[in-house]
Amino acid sequence: LVRYRTISKIPQITLNFVDLKGDPFLASPTSDREIIAPKIKERTHNVTEKVTQVLSLGADVLPEYKLQAPRIHRWTILHYSPFKAVWDWLILLLVIYTAVFTPYSAAFLLKETEEGPPATECGYACQPLAVVDLIVDIMFIVDILINFRTTYVNANEEVVSHPGRIAVHYFKGWFLIDMVAAIPFDLLIFGSGSEELIGLLKTARLLRLVRVARKLDRYSEYGAAVLFLLMCTFALIAHWLACIWYAIGNMEQPHMDSRIGWLHNLGDQIGKPYNSSGLGGPSIKDKYVTALYFTFSSLTSVGFGNVSPNTNSEKIFSICVMLIGSLMYASIFGNVSAIIQRLYSGTARYHTQMLRVREFIRFHQIPNPLRQRLEEYFQHAWSYTNGIDMNAVLKGFPECLQADICLHLNRSLLQHCKPFRGATKGCLRALAMKFKTTHAPPGDTLVHAGDLLTALYFISRGSIEILRGDVVVAILGKNDIFGEPLNLYARPGKSNGDVRALTYCDLHKIHR
């Protein structure tokens, strides 16, 4: 019993810090008490220290592992850092350059016999395009090294910054494609005289377009951006097909006994025919423009016929181009109408809503002055909100995010209106959640004399007048207030005048 009563005193000691020596009952000389009392004092002292730490809000209350900052290894790049964003855009520009100039170089340097010394005699450094290609190869190699040090988000939505895990993730992902696209074939085969082989191998750079397509997928929600990307894709495919079309004609031209190829026909049409040795002929500019003209006309199913396939190889390629053109029509131009419709969806919704308003007016036989006010209010409210119901949009977000959005939407009023000066951010967040926005066209009466005042109004834009009878008592403008002081009276009061809008007004109100 003594032991039980001794232990039962522990909660009292913990909360009230009572010393055991003052209790005459606990001072009985028993061996059990002498053993338990020192333990009680020690526990009391420890609990006292913990309570003191909690009340003082000291940093040592938290466990040590929670006080440590997340460790980022040296030379690790955050995937959302500004440097990584700028670097990704730079790589994107280099990939676009590669997609345009690599097929052009591979096709127009394929057994090209233009006048001038061969590239091997001039030297590697004197070729501007080769120098640019070398810079692109170096940048792609540097990009691989950067990807080995860039964080990523795993399946659990955690940012991984450990170098080993980053390397394994990159090896399992895009490393092989990036490595093949970054191989400097110019340096590996330079001086061997195989410019045709170098041009063909350099087309491996186009593998990076797969990554670019995935990154550009984030802009699919913007109709104008999608339309622009589709047109660029169409032009890029036409450019690639033009390079292939020229390569076919250029390879067949020296081996044909009869002059029936499209390059021969082009030379005869523009007065620059090929001679018996295969030299001469149109310039590279004429060849490229004509090839691009043929691919565009074939892809769009126009086909004027002034550039036509004559050999079997050219006919087979033309059939493939027609098939590609039909697929592009289905996948690209078939979506253009939907994209344009999405661009004008706001206008369509406006006309639909206006039609419903006019049908309501016609069905209920609203008189002319009231009908005009109804239409003007709808037009003004639509121009202010673009038909978007803010309350319906915010309803799907958590309250903390709703408060931040409301604070942002009402920031101008909260910053410049005098009653809100000096208020804490928590108070402003709470008030912003209570605001209701209303609009009024010129001549609209917001409050009639004798109406119950259940709200306090803040003028965000425009001006109003307060009338008693036919006498203008006051004219209020931006950041002015009218209405009933909230919670100042037990019952809502009545208006002693009319409140009429002089201009288009936007008002925020808080109800009782």
Rank of each mutant, 00 (worst) to 15 (best):
E64M: 04
E64N: 13
E64T: 04
K66T: 05
K66N: 11
L67H: 04
L67D: 04
Q68R: 11
I72P: 11
R74P: 07
R74K: 07
W75F: 10
H79F: 01
S81V: 01
F83N: 05
V86T: 03
V86Q: 01
V86R: 01
V86M: 12
W87I: 01
W87M: 01
L92H: 03
L93P: 01
V95A: 01
V95I: 13
Y97A: 01
Y97H: 01
T98N: 14
A99I: 01
V100M: 01
V100F: 01
T102A: 07
P103V: 01
A107G: 01
F108G: 05
F108W: 01
F108K: 02
L109Y: 07
L110M: 15
K111F: 01
E112S: 11
T113S: 07
T113H: 11
T113P: 06
E115N: 03
P117K: 10
P118Q: 15
P118M: 11
A119G: 14
T120D: 01
E121L: 09
E121Q: 11
E121R: 14
C122Q: 01
G123M: 01
Y124Q: 03
Y124M: 04
Y124N: 04
Q127Y: 12
P128C: 15
P128H: 03
V132Q: 01
L134W: 04
D137V: 01
F140K: 01
I141H: 04
I141C: 11
V142Y: 01
D143K: 01
L145D: 01
L145I: 01
L145Q: 01
N156S: 13
E157Y: 04
E158Q: 12
V159A: 01
V159H: 07
V160F: 01
S161I: 11
S161H: 12
P163I: 04
R165C: 11
I166C: 08
V168K: 15
H169K: 09
H169A: 09
Y170R: 01
F171S: 04
K172I: 04
G173Y: 05
G173A: 04
L176H: 04
D178S: 01
M179S: 12
V180W: 11
V180C: 14
A181M: 01
P184S: 01
F185T: 09
D186G: 14
D186T: 13
F190S: 13
G191Q: 06
S192R: 14
G193R: 13
G193Q: 13
E196T: 13
E196M: 11
L197S: 03
G199M: 08
L200D: 01
L200R: 04
L200M: 11
L201V: 05
T203N: 11
A204H: 01
L206N: 01
L207T: 13
R208C: 12
R208D: 01
L209G: 05
L209Q: 01
A213P: 06
R214D: 05
L216Q: 03
L216W: 04
D217Q: 08
R218H: 05
R218V: 05
S220W: 12
S220I: 09
G223F: 04
A224N: 05
A224F: 14
A225P: 05
L227M: 13
L227V: 11
F228T: 12
L229A: 05
L229S: 04
L230A: 05
C232M: 11
F234G: 01
A238S: 01
A238G: 03
H239D: 01
L241M: 04
A242Y: 01
I244W: 01
I244T: 01
Y246G: 01
Y246C: 01
N250D: 01
N250L: 11
M251W: 13
M251A: 13
E252Q: 07
E252K: 03
Q253E: 11
D257Y: 01
R259W: 01
R259F: 01
G261A: 01
W262A: 01
H264D: 02
G267L: 03
G267R: 01
D268V: 14
I270V: 03
P273W: 01
N275I: 01
S277T: 08
L279V: 09
L279C: 13
G280K: 01
G280A: 03
G280C: 01
G281I: 01
P282F: 01
D286L: 01
D286K: 01
V289N: 01
V289D: 01
V289I: 15
V289T: 01
A291F: 01
L292W: 01
Y293T: 01
Y293L: 05
F294P: 01
T295Y: 01
F296D: 01
S298A: 14
L299C: 01
V302N: 06
V302E: 01
V302W: 01
G303T: 03
G303C: 03
G303R: 01
F304L: 01
G305V: 01
G305Y: 01
N306V: 01
N306G: 01
V307D: 01
S308E: 01
P309R: 06
N310C: 01
N310W: 01
N312F: 01
E314V: 01
M322C: 06
G325Y: 01
L327T: 01
M328N: 01
S331W: 12
S331F: 11
G334H: 06
G334W: 03
N335Y: 13
V336E: 03
I339V: 07
I340C: 03
I340G: 02
L343N: 04
L343D: 12
Y344W: 05
Y344S: 11
S345R: 06
G346I: 05
R349F: 07
Y350P: 01
Y350W: 09
L355P: 01
V357P: 02
R358T: 05
R358C: 03
R358W: 02
I361L: 09
I361T: 03
F363E: 01
H364N: 13
Q365A: 10
I366H: 01
P367D: 10
P367G: 06
P369S: 07
L370K: 01
L370P: 03
E375R: 05
E376N: 13
A381I: 08
W382F: 04
S383C: 07
S383H: 01
Y384F: 06
Y384I: 15
N386H: 04
I388R: 04
I388M: 08
N391H: 12
N391E: 08
A392F: 04
L394M: 09
K395L: 12
P398M: 01
C400P: 09
Q402N: 01
A403D: 01
D404L: 02
I405P: 01
I405Y: 01
C406Y: 08
C406R: 08
H408D: 01
H408M: 03
L409E: 03
N410A: 05
N410Q: 12
S412V: 09
L414M: 08
H416M: 08
C417V: 11
T424A: 10
K425P: 12
C427S: 05
C427G: 03
L428C: 08
R429L: 03
R429D: 01
A430T: 12
A430K: 10
L431G: 02
K434R: 11
T437G: 04
T437E: 05
H439T: 14
H439C: 07
G443S: 03
V447S: 02
